[in-house]
Write a protein that binds this DNA or RNA. Sequence first.
RNA 1: GCCGACUUAGCUCAACCUGGCAGAGCAACUGAUUUGUAAUCAGUAGGUUGUAGGUUCGAUUCCUAUAGUCGGCACCA
Length: 578
Amino acid sequence: MINIKEDPALNVLNHSCAHLMAQAIKHLYPHALFWVGPVITDGFYYDIDLQEQVITEEDLLKIEKEMKKISKDGKRITREEISKAEALALFKDDPYKLDLINNMDENEVVISVYRQGDFVDLCRGPHVESVKQLKFFKLLKVSGAYFKGDSKNKMLQRVYGVCFATEEALNDHLYMLEEAKKRDHKKLGRELNLFMISEYGPGFPFFLPNGMIILNELENFWYEEHSKEGYQFIKTPIMLNQQLWETSGHWSVYRENMYTSEIDDTMFAIKPMNCPGAMLVYKNAIHSYKEFPLRVGELGLVHRHEASGALNGLFRVRAFTQDDAHIFMREEQIEGEIIRLINFIDRIYSVFGLTYKIELSTRPLSKYIGSIEVWDRAEAILEKACLEAGKACKINPGDGAFYGPKLDFHIQDSLGRVWQCGTIQLDMNLPERFDLTYIESDGSKKRPIMLHRVIYGSIERFIGILIEHYGGAFPLWLAPRQIVIVPVNPEVHGQYAHEVASVLLQQGLRVEVDERNEKLGYRIREAQVNKIPVQLVIGDEEVANQSVNIRRYQQKEQNNCNLADFVINITKERDGKY
RNA sequence: GCCGACUUAGCUCAACCUGGCAGAGCAACUGAUUUGUAAUCAGUAGGUUGUAGGUUCGAUUCCUAUAGUCGGCACCA
């Protein structure tokens, strides 16, 4: 997907198109006031205060029409540099522009306005020379957006659009958006019977038999890989009492998002995070430096009361499984452990062919605990580890958790939306709150360093991302239905078909025999539609040669292969994920 | 939670604007057909139109509320 914001030519084009849209909206809604209209990754938007009026998606065509009219008129776009006083005078009736101008320092920035016909806007530019150049655009959606991004402020209306230099480029982009919609995990999840969400439990996903297979494969894979990395595993309770959450600090900070229930006059909360339980496990024994780094993993089911409007298929749910682990160590072990983790995460993602970006989130400006020196040191270690591991790392200033800095791994879905999956977080809070200790080599009691980390992030979300990433056509090891055997004539070839099936079943492959009373073409089509990786057709020839005829998903060619070789090849493919 | 849109058979959609017996394709089921690589033919069944109110002689259609879903915002794994 093209990043319009980072393409210099498209950036200018889209920015100018945002102005064109604003001009058209001003024509149609004379009372409209405009806040800002920036370029984003997939186009542009403008935030508008329509004062009681509403733009709905139906109105977008009308606005587009007006934009085309203005574009045809072909007015030049001109730049003027003005003083702050002049700017304040020019926009004296526009509180939004006054807000912007008042926040500008004349000595630092040049204040400029751009004019096109009857429209003038405060803007840094640059812009195209004439509105005539803005021909191939499309308004895509309209939504609400809080003024200055703060939910305490009033909501403005935000209209999104996109602009290209040629009709082909625009059409390609729109086509791609349509294609991406076909990969939507909610749609594929229903079609392939992977999961469902009932209105009786908004945000609480149900996994269906096919989805369960994917879930189990991912969990098995996770356990295997973590065992190799020296992890131990635990399972901590779903519910723990109020006192524990007070100790962890969640009761005061996170209470709104926690589900609670009273048991025998004591308040309990369903865990929104696994850490406090893991702390109790650590404290259950006395630990020595010799055990470090102590890696304790847990596939932990957590529940969080997420805002209703945030829910979105498997991407955002109220109950999910974190592939959590807590690692306890000495300070000098941090860097090595983090490098090791980055490589581990990289290896896992590469199995799925997922690309990702790492970001380092640093100390928040206000709400944080611990000393600045400790934060600086921790951030430096994270950044260094990232560089040592050979990964680029963008810095997100002030985005860290209150308890420590973190490295976040961001993966893109099919619509180009970015999801945080993996994260490595240093925690400077919980070891203190739970008074965790270990015995140093000199016999003294010391406080261990602890970090939390996840790789999938949430298995539910990760499955959503995988569904879209693969477009529902999973690699063999993950495919819920791996092989369909289609006897040409079930009555004649059915017996051999079942013999083949039982050989494959013994290898732990997921096999079905489709002996329905339907034409071969029908059954093949059905297997293709259901994105089943391997179809084996069996007729006279195959029975005679003790062979199978192989056709793969989305391929037309067929190959004959004797059964024994096929079994070897297919199991090798399944087990060779990397 | 906020803004907007949407909700009709298992799925995809029609009828709604302009109130008057709720339809189609796919899937399912039954029968015929016995099939060589993306849809064989015929038939059957499937619905308190998300829910609750209201307007009306009459509501899937108009109005109100509510739930859920989707696109964003805010939040976030």
